[in-house]
Design a protein around this nucleic acid. Structure first.
Lengths: 189, 189
DNA sequence: GTTTTTTGCCTAATATCATTAGTTTTTATG
DNA sequence: CATAAAAACTAATGATATTAGGCAAAAAAC
């Protein structure tokens, strides 16, 4: 019986593709075993357990998002950079809901420290450079923007904006304008 | 064999309690069957399936959150009301993470229309009354605030603010101040 | 009170997913 | 070529979920 030639990387890649096509919940060890035409137990030679596989997919998804964020803020600052970054988040969530969901898989501190999540925070700080905030205020602003990006995408994906007008596009734009305005005149303590 | 006296309401209540104690993921038909000392298949006389049960729990959790929101904005408007509402969201998420997660369970349009989620939106609009926004701008603001509340709680619960200073409390306060400032001078199109 | 109907709970079966321990076979290494 | 390492398999186990049919408790009807 020749070996199929599985590897951890292959499983993670295939898992991410499956997440993108059918949603993160469709990613199971059983599904991947079927895809590679091996017995399920064979996968344990390459991943510790289901959670280990999903962690790998989450890290890959975060890196994918971070790549796009880095590209978006490159050569930009201030309002333009923030808007570009916001667009990246929203487009990623809308175009790749399965991968977006994967980015939300819980990671431990060590995993998070080396992840695309940190790169995202750096891209956000780079985008905020044009606002001239202090170091502490920059963190507050990163958290404010990060919360808005995440919350908006989740609410939109969940259909929360589907039952009322105006269209979400406009709310997104107006929300960014409001945030830009307040960043320009950041309140002092 | 005397009947245990199960009912749909009892199962939903017990499920919500279990979610609160051990997290939403711990809520399974099997777990509830054990708790009531009946065979799992018996539960199907009261709920259609696992999703039906979880939908019921989600609606109960949303109502619980909405009750707190209504109480918080009662007799308040403007900055004070928004801050109280924000606190309710954040406290609920932090004190009842299992129930908070339940509120995020997907609902169809009909279920959502009659849910505590609509009451939350109303409480939000009531809180915004003090800012004198137009009807359309009010929707944008509801979505901006709702996104921030949800996003902040999720990031905080996920440990995203655990690896850096300043403490999340301060970021939350400063974020609200920034949002208050921009609501006061809402950008015109 | 008795009889009939409804409905709650159980049994049996089935399906799916996940994990572990040990075995066999393939591939890599010396 | 022989040996060791590792990939893939087998068997077993455990957990969750759902369906169909049967039995008996409780409710409804007489």
């Amino acid at each position: 019986m020749p070996r199929v030639g599985l590897s951890r990387e292959k499983l993670i890649e295939a898992g991410a593709s499956l997440a993108d096509r059918e949603g993160f919940a469709a990613v199971t060890l059983a599904a991947l075993a079927r895809q590679f035409e091996v017995k399920l137990a064979s996968l344990y030679a390459h991943v510790r357990n289901s959670e280990d596989l999903k962690t790998g997919i989450a890290l890959l998804a975060l890196d994918s998002l971070a790549d796009r964020a880095d590209a978006a803020v490159s050569g930009r600052a201030g309002k333009e950079a923030v808007a570009a970054l916001a667009e990246v988040h929203r487009r990623f969530a809308a175009d790749h809901p399965g991968l977006f969901e994967a980015t939300r898989f819980p990671l431990n501190a060590e995993q998070a420290a080396g992840s695309g999540g940190m790169r995202l925070a750096r891209a956000m700080r780079a985008a905020l450079r044009g606002y001239g905030l202090s170091e502490a205020d920059e963190v507050h602003a990163v958290r404010l923007l990060g919360s808005f990006f995440l919350g908006f995408s989740l609410l939109e994906l969940g259909g929360n904006f589907a039952h009322s007008q105006p269209a979400p596009d406009l709310s997104f734009t107006r929300g960014l304008e409001a945030l830009d305005a307040t960043l320009k005149t950041w309140v002092k303590s």
